[in-house]
Design a protein around this nucleic acid. Sequence first.
DNA 1: GATGAATGAGGCTTCATTCAT
DNA 2: TATGAATGAAGCCTCATTCAT
Lengths: 206, 206, 206, 206
Amino acid sequence: MNTDSPISTRRDRKREEKRQAIVAAAEEVFGAKGVADASMSEIADLADVAAGTLYLYFSGKEALFFAAFAKRISTLFESTHAHWEANGPLRDRLAEVVRLHLSFVRTNRGFYEFLMTLGHPDHTSPGEFSPLIELCDSQLSLQTAAFAKAQANGEISDKLAPEFLSRALRSLAFGMVTDAVNRRKTEDLESVVEPLVELFWNGISK
Amino acid sequence: MNTDSPISTRRDRKREEKRQAIVAAAEEVFGAKGVADASMSEIADLADVAAGTLYLYFSGKEALFFAAFAKRISTLFESTHAHWEANGPLRDRLAEVVRLHLSFVRTNRGFYEFLMTLGHPDHTSPGEFSPLIELCDSQLSLQTAAFAKAQANGEISDKLAPEFLSRALRSLAFGMVTDAVNRRKTEDLESVVEPLVELFWNGISK
Amino acid sequence: MNTDSPISTRRDRKREEKRQAIVAAAEEVFGAKGVADASMSEIADLADVAAGTLYLYFSGKEALFFAAFAKRISTLFESTHAHWEANGPLRDRLAEVVRLHLSFVRTNRGFYEFLMTLGHPDHTSPGEFSPLIELCDSQLSLQTAAFAKAQANGEISDKLAPEFLSRALRSLAFGMVTDAVNRRKTEDLESVVEPLVELFWNGISK
Amino acid sequence: MNTDSPISTRRDRKREEKRQAIVAAAEEVFGAKGVADASMSEIADLADVAAGTLYLYFSGKEALFFAAFAKRISTLFESTHAHWEANGPLRDRLAEVVRLHLSFVRTNRGFYEFLMTLGHPDHTSPGEFSPLIELCDSQLSLQTAAFAKAQANGEISDKLAPEFLSRALRSLAFGMVTDAVNRRKTEDLESVVEPLVELFWNGISK
DNA sequence: GATGAATGAGGCTTCATTCAT
DNA sequence: TATGAATGAAGCCTCATTCAT
């Protein structure tokens, strides 16, 4: 039966679709609750599959979490990439990136929590995380390059290493979430973005 | 029989000591793993008491977590208070505070995680958290006052609200932990502190 | 693929069977010991399932108890219904019903205990019990009707309300169990049934 | 020191008083909740003693329960004794006794529950109960005697054994509590007492 | 491949009882 | 004798994972 290949292609497509559906559900649930508080059946329900099915696509809870994390963080990074590669004044691009980070953390507390532990030295098996770490690293390069170029142009001060700037930007944006503590009104993104960019911009200007 | 009062005092002291031991154990465990991943028996073991004993001092897991969180965060705040109230150049004090925050987050991931959710709008019972929120707020005031004074002195620019600066400082310091992702060498605090302060200082200088 | 329906039917049947097995085990254990003294694992063991399985069928201990209670009491009521609807002298039917009640209480102390508290005013959530209360009420109606008819026929005295007679009959039968206290020989049902009916019959005769 | 004896007398009195206080508290709590749902500390609190103290007076929970049960049931029996020994028409005395039983059960569900199990054949150690059983038996004798006398007088029919009448009376009164199920208004004692006595009286009249 | 019922380890919590003070 | 802190067994329940269908 030479229909094998087409059939398996159709199958593969279906399989891939289901996989996506599962990851999407996992993104939703893990993002909102974090690994520990999310349950596999909850994800299965949302993905509209049986609980057992999850294990046909992922080896366990952790693996599924990793996949969901990778997906979400990639999505974020793709958006920031677009801005870094665009033209226009650096300050404006900074603002966009800050905005993206801020809103990411808002709806992805579960992943942000994990982000904090990714590089933690007392992880039992740091090896497992390396793909995720690389993923996160990769995004930084682009940012770093943008800062380097701006320093070369004389657009900003070159007193601080571009790599540091890149990391600091991300940290500042992500970190502002703790702000929720004092404000309890995380809704108005803009009232945070602008001063943040202003501060950062002053910090790096000549 | 005037031994009554001393007796009860001795007992109270013992009781208080045990309470402290329990909270200390809880700080350790919750700080390292977060609420969800920590188990009560683990804490009991570390505190060297039976599992049931925990419930003589705290009504449940949540209450114990709150106590541990409050203790740790208070300790941090007391240190930062000391620096804010000291004399000396603002920039140096900034450096100290950043250092403190940085090292706090390093060993208290579990609490930092919680800090992020403290003001989260979809908490079922935000009322329960108010004491903790107030605790966190209180520390900010002191910082805010310091910034306000520096602006009045003309020491720093007054373009950004002192309250915002206060929050941003904390966020920046806390947020830099995500840096762990890329570096995996969180040990060398100093290599982070200095550029961070430099950046922030530039950002707020005239 | 018309196998769908049969398949799900088979599954449903199996599920239903297991549910029945669980309820049966619960009837046994709760009936003998009452809610408080029975343990879920005991029931699980008797039903030959894992402890966790119980929670796939019932939301918790209370729900399982209710189901078991409803089952047992329904069984009792179905038997009494049969007698009330049959023809034959009222006195004989009375005897049968008394016999049934008596033997019910003997092996269902746990449920009888609960029966006593069903209408208790200081139940926290009386609402939850209403289905059970209705169940118990429903049986009374039939009895009441039988007494009313007998009064209309002039078969018995009409000095007491038929509804009261209905309740008194049940109470007398159920209550005779306390007799166990003095006799320790609950085995000989008959030696209780006959005088009881005689007494009641005299009480209601013209 | 020849003060020994008076001192120990005073001590004994004090000890006795405390014992009474404990039993009183136990009556309250066990009566309301039954053995299983009552807790020792609850009783200790109510008696205003430390938890450990209970064990200086009673060997354990069960022993305390027995003491409380014996106390309450004795109190009930003393009241009924008074009525049986009084003069006056039998019917009136019946009414009083019914009233007493009814109101006993109302506030002593916990003990009534136990009453039902007292003679249960599958009690592990029936021997332990014999004092309680005797206690309950003793009350019956008086009632039985009263019925026997009434039969001798020709006041009531002698078709049923006086002992049976005695037991039936108690059962009927106790059993009417299940009535709560259908009525949910156990408050109006009188609306139950009168028809009950009427029914019973008819049942035993000539 | 998909299902979802079943499992059972493990977590939180309560409470009768003991024992050092 | 009285205390009440401490214990730890036992109970209820959840949920990641497996496996027969």
